[in-house]
């Protein structure tokens, strides 16, 4: 049985419809890459799974439980509940807590009562993956560099005892070498029979590291990745395209 099953999911913000009837099935133990240009709905898809869109419609079944449904307002109202059922999101823009230390930021990821007790050992695991954070534990997160912030954001998601990890654009805004290291680390984490979805603009970063890649174009899922990227994969083209489509959604 699929760990996550989306059927006819549409979502958007106010009058804007970003997702059009998305159907998606993610299997246990699967690492799924989601590629597409800026503004084509990758972030909105991940946001819809945790209820962080302006409005949404359609069925989202996570481990046999319905977490979607029709909703016209109340952005984020269901999010804490969904997160506690075992979905961890590392959102775009990191959303770290600038005034807290790196350790407190990571601890906040293990916020649920059950994981809070084991936060020290979970933190150790995260630091094994993101070793550069180890000497920075007592530093205030607001003083970190972009790459370090991204590690804190992704690390915070990994602190949760989740069955499904959603990582939004791990490479965005990072130097190529750093983003390669980050994505490689993400793809080596043992997810057991859970699952992970990585949204990413840079297809070569994912190639050969994930189990399956799906494309996203104009709010619809495409089996053919080339179509989603418009056959113009170089990063510069992608950036220009992204700016043409306006703000990232």
């Amino acid at each position: 049985m699929a760990i996550l099953e989306l059927a006819g999911v549409s979502a958007g913000y106010g009058p804007v419809r970003v997702l059009h009837d998305v159907n998606l099935s993610v299997n246990p133990g699967e690492r799924l890459g989601l590629v597409g240009l800026n503004g084509h709905g990758k972030t909105t898809l991940l946001s819809a799974i945790v209820g962080l869109t302006g409005w949404q419609d359609g069925s989202i079944i996570f481990e046999g439980r319905q977490i979607g449904g029709r909703r016209t307002h109340g952005m984020g109202r269901t999010t804490p509940n969904i997160v506690r059922q075992g979905i961890a999101l590392a959102p775009q823009g990191d959303a770290i807590f600038p005034g807290l230390t790196v350790r407190e930021n990571l601890d906040s990821g293990a916020y649920t009562r059950a994981t809070w007790r084991s936060r020290r050992s979970r933190c150790d695991h995260v630091l094994d993956v993101f070793a550069p954070l180890r000497p920075l534990l007592r530093q205030t997160a607001g003083t970190l560099s972009g790459g370090e912030r991204r590690m804190v954001s992704v690390g915070r998601a990994l602190m949760a005892d989740a069955r499904l990890y959603l990582v939004d654009e791990p490479s965005l805004g990072l130097a190529p070498k750093i983003s390669l290291g980050l994505v490689a680390a993400l793809c080596e984490i043992n997810i057991g029979d859970g699952a992970m979805i990585i949204a990413e603009q840079n297809l070569p970063l994912l190639n050969g590291r994930v189990d399956r890649v799906l494309g996203m174009h104009a709010g619809e899922l495409k089996q053919d990745v080339g179509e989603a990227l418009g056959d113009i994969p170089p990063a510069a083209e992608a950036m220009a395209q992204g700016m043409h489509h306006g703000r990232a959604l």
Binding site: P80, V83, F97, L100, Y111, T112, A160
Partner: peptide, 18 residues
């Protein structure tokens, strides 16, 4: 920790289940 987290970043707080 939850309250301070919410003061600094409501989106981040929602994402970690606050």
């Amino acid at each position: 920790l939850q309250m301070r987290a919410m003061m600094m970043n409501p989106l981040g707080a929602a994402v970690v289940g606050v």
